[in-house]
């Protein structure tokens, strides 16, 4: 197995049924699986690894590719290509669909991870804080937040109000997902029975939105509109990523329940209030002589 040692892929860890927490890492892992690349997947969870590599990065014979498009073009030179069987017209459609996903869905995912106040503070940031070793968790979360803020500024230069941007986001995401859903139709994958690059990209953006237990759940309910997209995610999970645990590793269940129940009033408090109100009424009645003792 000397081949295996040659390809090394460094990615962020996954959680909650996702193979990785970062869309670009999901893309790289899925690409490696689909292309049947003999690769060793390393998780960035120690100071030594975090200091040396960024996620995702693929290392082969001292050639380092540090983002998804670089990885794709590097693997093409090594004859690992999953889109070989497509006709020129299909390739053209593929390019268009990938651009649509990258330009419309990517900002939505980024926004829900990092800009939405509740998600970012209660979920994403907390998760990275625990998953990455000490100096890197602060560095990474800060870098990502700045990146997404820049992206939003570039996309919506006139709007600074997060709520308005969020409305735009939901609108454009709905439109875009409707397109994908009707394009997918009843097929297994976008181009027939085998997955291609489009499937990887679309999966990497919609899987986090479906699976992660975000505190603000505007998006989860939206997916009820497109059952075929949910099925699509399940299909890829079952076939290519079967051994991913659904359990949440870093954010424990009880903490989540606690944060969810924040708005609810506890039963003890209600009991105390009822008891004191009843005793006051009772005291008042006795005092006025309504109840004879």
């Amino acid at each position: 197995m000397t081949e295996t040692d040659k390809f090394q892929l460094y990615v962020f860890e996954g959680d909650c049924g996702l193979v990785s927490f970062d869309p670009e890492c999901i893309q790289s892992i899925l690409l490696a699986k689909l292309a049947k690349l003999p690769v060793k997947i390393n998780l960035l969870n120690s100071i030594r690894k975090c200091a040396r590599y960024t996620a995702p990065s693929l290392i082969n014979k001292k050639v380092v590719s540090t983002n998804y498009s670089e990885i794709v073009s590097y693997l093409r030179t090594k004859n690992y290509n999953i889109d070989q069987s497509l006709s020129p017209k299909q390739c053209s459609e593929m390019l268009a669909l990938t651009t649509l996903a990258n330009s419309k869905l990517r900002p939505v995912v980024d926004f829900f991870f990092w800009m939405d106040a509740r998600n970012s503070e209660d979920f994403t940031t907390m998760w990275y804080m625990r998953a990455l070793p000490l100096p890197f968790n602060f560095m990474h979360t800060r870098r990502e937040k700045n990146k997404v803020a820049d992206l939003m500024e570039a996309l919506y230069p006139n709007d600074t109000n997060v709520e308005i941007i969020k409305n735009f986001m939901i609108k454009s995401a709905t439109q875009c997902l409707t397109s994908f859903s009707s394009r997918l139709g009843k097929q297994d994958y976008f181009f027939g029975s085998t997955p291609t690059t489009v499937d990887i990209i679309v999966y990497s953006y919609i899987a986090p939105l479906i699976k992660l237990p975000f505190p603000s759940s505007e998006f989860k309910n939206l997916f009820n509109l497109w059952p075929n997209l949910t099925m699509f995610v399940k299909r890829i999970d079952a076939k290519y990523l079967p051994d991913v645990s659904v359990e949440s590793k870093y954010l424990k269940k009880d903490e989540k329940i606690k944060s969810v129940n924040d708005d609810d009033v506890s039963y003890t408090a209600i009991a105390i209030i009822i008891l004191s109100a009843a005793s006051i009424i009772f005291g008042f009645a006795v005092n006025r002589g309504f109840i004879q003792t």
Binding site: E93, L95, A96, L97, T99, L100, N102, S103, K104, Q175, C176, T178, S179, F180, S182, R183, G185
Partner: peptide
Amino acid sequence: DQEAKSDMRAYMSLVHNV
């Protein structure tokens, strides 16, 4: 049809983004 509409949207984003 729906499929043509989504293809059109995809190609429009291609022109915009490239």
